[in-house]
Design a protein around this nucleic acid. Structure first.
Lengths: 317, 317
DNA sequence: TTTGCTCATGGGCAATTACTCACCAGAGGA
DNA sequence: TCCTCTGGTGAGTAATTGCCCATGAGCAAA
């Protein structure tokens, strides 16, 4: 019984010490003097107060909610990187805030002094992010595009992001001199066998970090809007369970690549290893929810940059 | 990337750093790495977060000694509410600790779902408490100031607390468009007869809970320091037995309002009924002892938030 | 354009804090 | 009674943090 009351008294002391430390801002030495104990004991009491959750810290800032969501996402999906930006309340645009955040993240990688390989996917959101990049000189790095740069009509694909990136960033960049979709698996094989293409493919496979957009499916999704797929093909895909697309690779709600689909004809570099490198998806919005969720569940990506509203839906789902 | 010079962005970063440090428990080195800044910058952001009061620390523990004192106070003076916080041993500041405790109590009232009327007095201690409040949405409540918001020189009275409160709390708030002291009893009557003022007076009278500071008298007391009373007037008051003031209402050591004094000219709302509502005084310190004691003895207040040392003196006296 | 001011930065260093180790005291069981 | 286990203590040491200073960028006034 002495033990019980001692424990109680110790918690009181812990509370007192914690109060003096955190609220009154005194040092542990001063607390030790005030309570007539050794400095080490004061330190123990303070850390006990923390461990017993007597001390509650709160952060009054809109960012706090975002950071908590990011932490939750990281935990739920085992991510290497998660970033949540505040939702634009009036937000209809799919790039508000997220583009800046993604640009900041890209910039962090570009600032590294050691040479790395950065792979870049495609998509409007990613393009908006890249457009936010300030001019930089990064001759130590190599930047490689995961997707072909030739559109369905033979012109340059507009949302091939690597050219926008090359405008701002001085680095060696490697576009893919291929269409986005081949007409058949055989054609893809032939094309991929070219020396130039092969080295680019190899480069992509070695990427240290990859940034990709995430496309939703449906007749309003980017694959259709940009003319890579016809309306009928798309409807068939959706009927077969397709939920989203990254660099043209189509997957279902669990993030499993579809086998009997256009995936045989996608000319893109396979998405780099999520074991050995960071693959960061950049997307937000209700329309993309299934696509983002699938990519996370199937571990097609191991990093995400999104907004508050989307993060909440991802966590509740 | 956004310009680093903009204040908003810097505060966001400070919030991020503060969150990572206090909530996630990372070291400043880790934060620096995560945010791609130097460790020193991370440290600056963390201390900025503290300086900007983005970080709020609260101690959640009923400390035995304080509880005992609180219980004794409650019994001795028949109080509805008594709260005692640990004294800062080296404490010179009159707001350390007590402000947090008072803020917690105010927050408890604000969190009530049923609509209530909260009346707010004045004073430095009370202002410090209100400054600790986190942003809240409480549209169901009404907050009314007991004192005028026009200072002796015609400017806005700085320690009129309701405006600070309005910054953090989203609720209907009703300041008093009056001076603190009128030049005569007649002027007061005229002013109080205005329709707008009358409705505010009425609102104040209906308050469910009232928070007031307690001011000591003397030439160093707030009435003099803030220029509401001249030195001579004050000395006369003290000679006549004045011991303290709440919202400008001056009372003696037994808590009886003085009849022949400035009380005829105080424009404040009468202190709400202690029979039907809670009137909580917030004060500590040896200088205020007579003022606090008088307010308790005369039942001008029926609740007190103070510190350990003051509580002990109140009980021994 | 120059000048002067403000403010963020990074380095270095001293103060402060956290952790590990060895030891001790009391409770409870064999 | 003795042993062991739990939980606390102080010392020493490594890690972390706070502060000062010189520097340089951005900006407004001259």
């Amino acid at each position: 019984m002495a033990k019980r009351s001692d424990t109680q008294g110790r918690l009181d002391d812990a509370a007192r010490a914690g109060w003096l430390y955190y609220v009154a801002g005194r040092t542990q030495d001063e607390i030790a003097a005030a309570m007539s104990i050794s400095r080490q004991s004061a330190q123990r009491l303070v850390s006990l107060a923390v461990a017993e959750r007597l001390i509650k810290v709160r952060l009054d800032h809109p960012i706090a909610a975002c950071l908590e969501l990011a932490e939750a996402l990281r935990k739920k999906y085992g991510l290497r990187h998660a970033e949540v930006v505040p939702s634009d309340p009036a937000g209809s645009s799919s790039t508000v805030g997220i583009a800046e955040a993604a640009a900041a993240e890209i910039e962090r990688w570009l600032k590294r002094p050691d040479p790395i390989i950065i792979a870049i996917g495609t998509g409007r959101t990613l393009k908006a992010a890249v457009d936010q990049l300030p001019p930089m000189e990064c001759l130590q790095h190599r930047i490689v595009s995961l997707t072909g740069n030739i559109g369905p009509d033979g012109s340059a694909a507009f949302y091939n992001v690597i050219f926008s990136m090359a405008d701002a960033i001085k680095a060696r960049h490697f576009p893919m001199p291929l269409p986005v979709l081949c007409s058949s698996a055989e054609e893809r094989e032939t094309l991929h066998d070219q020396a130039l293409v092969r080295s680019t493919l190899q480069l992509g496979a070695q990427a240290d970090v990859t940034f990709v957009g995430i496309g939703e499916l449906g007749v309003d999704g980017p694959l259709c809007v940009d003319g890579f797929l016809g309306r009928e093909e798309m409807l068939t895909l959706v009927k077969n369970g397709a939920a989203g697309e990254i660099c043209g690779w189509v997957y279902d709600r669990q993030g499993q690549l579809l086998g009997n689909s256009i995936n045989d004809r996608v000319a893109s570099v396979p998405i780099p290893s999520r074991e050995k490198s960071s693959v960061i998806g950049i997307a937000l919005g209700k329309k993309k929810l299934a696509a983002i969720s699938g990519a996370l569940k199937g571990k097609i990506i191991n990093g995400i940059i999104t907004d508050e509203a989307t993060a909440e839906q991802l966590l509740s789902g």
